[in-house]
Design a protein around this nucleic acid. Structure first.
Lengths: 245, 245
DNA sequence: CGCGATTTTGAGAGCCGTCAAGATACGTGG
DNA sequence: CCACGTATCTTGACGGCTCTCAAAATCGCG
């Protein structure tokens, strides 16, 4: 299909309040940097775990997840990519990927050539800094996730991810009130939290029984966000404006 | 104490084969960037979990660990910092820290002012790229750690960290044959792996009984590295040369 | 020599995993 | 519109890995 090129300076995402404003010169540089757009279907691989993709992506629309697997098949979901996320930075830096990325919903990706990243560092220090910013953000999310999997109980973990993902979606305007179109299955949650599917299901039931949330089909509703936060012992989150490439 | 300034261009670390070579201009820039040196004692905090340190550090000597804690005191160790590691990048980028760092051994740190990081991005794209490289490396280590804590059994986790840390130390020339001066306590290992101290101890005993390793006092000896790797289902590691600031 | 930190071992409990079976939902083809 | 297959969700029973509690041994150090 012929990619419908959206001009970056007209990109609706740059106008969202959760992203920092860009200067005209930055926008036009990114535009020249952009190779095209890519649409992928749910379940489709965006990067394979062993492969060495020559591309760097920005998420324009949809959800994806990053994961690693052990030789015997056990899978750990590392993080989720939502609009504004960068995919494939590790490959750009190391020339090799050590994790896979798979789409959860229909997605629209902005494609960059990873060779060009060097010209970005040479020509636009402010954008180079943004790339580092995004890498550091991913690191912080992983820190928080690791704290969960290592120290929290099953109930705490579940409360934490759901609370966390809801807030990330909310920042991006994907929610309506306390409602969210939530594309994960319970298996995804289990692989995210290091729990079995069965135990995830039973723990979920307890959270529902306690009126914290409801989840039917793809519709997730958070009825007691503060309760979830308390259960998870989570800190309030700081909502800084972030870069969007 | 008056910091004994080692000139970067004479810094012994830059000559190690695991680090990339730097150009004269890069070295002299880093030198101007350097504020001084800091020595810290074992157990001393380098960055506090809530604090907002104005500094960015490079490890010249010694071991430290990064951690997060829950309000009720449970602690998760996120990663270890060895010579060549960067400490405080998140603070430089976000103006806030979300984890603490504590020294395990006597350390020597190279101190930079985090305000200057911007001039680095403007003046030296190659060094800016190096900062991103290091951030992406930390991300990859966290990915691997999360896979461990989420999916591996106690025995597999223990085999994996010990194997992993031994190799990192080996790269840096801190080992002698299969011997390593290992500064962690079993409590550190437990908090790293998300296990209780007691279970960590018992699992360690099994690895010793199987002749995989021995550990007396601070002396760790790996007798069967390949066995550890097999138990952990770990991939061989790629030893790319990496930047050192 | 004595005290605190660390390591070690045993006993019992509980959180969570595995196994198994059914229920529900959804897309496809007849 | 119904039959059917696949994916997902749900629930119960049972087992085991890991936790907590407790106490003793060992080490490091002033």
């Amino acid at each position: 299909m012929p990619p419908r090129q959206i001009k970056c300076r007209e990109c609706p995402h740059h106008k969202r309040s959760c992203f920092r404003e860009m200067e005209e010169s930055e926008l036009s540089f990114i535009e020249s940097f952009k190779q095209g757009e890519l649409a992928v279907e749910p379940g489709a691989p965006i990067v394979l775990e062993e492969a060495n993709s020559p591309h760097l992506f920005t998420v324009l629309k949809g959800w994806a997840f990053r994961y690693k697997t052990l030789p015997d098949g056990r899978r750990q979901i590392l993080n989720y990519a939502l609009p504004g996320g960068l995919i494939g930075l590790q490959a750009s830096v190391f020339n090799e990927m050590s994790h896979g990325v798979e789409a959860l919903t229909p997605m629209l990706l902005c494609v960059f050539s990873r060779d060009q990243i060097w010209t970005l560092y040479e020509g636009f220090p402010s954008l180079a800094f943004d790339v580092t910013w995004l890498a550091a953000r991913e690191e912080r999310l992983l820190d928080e996730h690791l704290l969960s999997v290592g120290q929290r109980t099953a109930k705490e973990r579940l409360a934490h991810v759901l609370w966390h993902l809801f807030h990330r979606a909310e920042e991006l305007g994907l929610t309506e009130g306390n409602k969210l179109d939530f594309p994960l299955t319970q298996q995804h949650l289990a692989d995210t939290l290091g729990l079995s599917l069965v135990h995830t299901n039973k723990t979920l039931r307890r959270l529902r029984d306690e009126q914290c949330l409801s989840w039917e089909g793809r519709l997730l509703q958070i009825h007691d966000a503060e309760g979830l936060r308390r259960i998870a012992q989570a800190n309030e989150l700081s909502t800084q404006r972030r870069p969007f490439l």
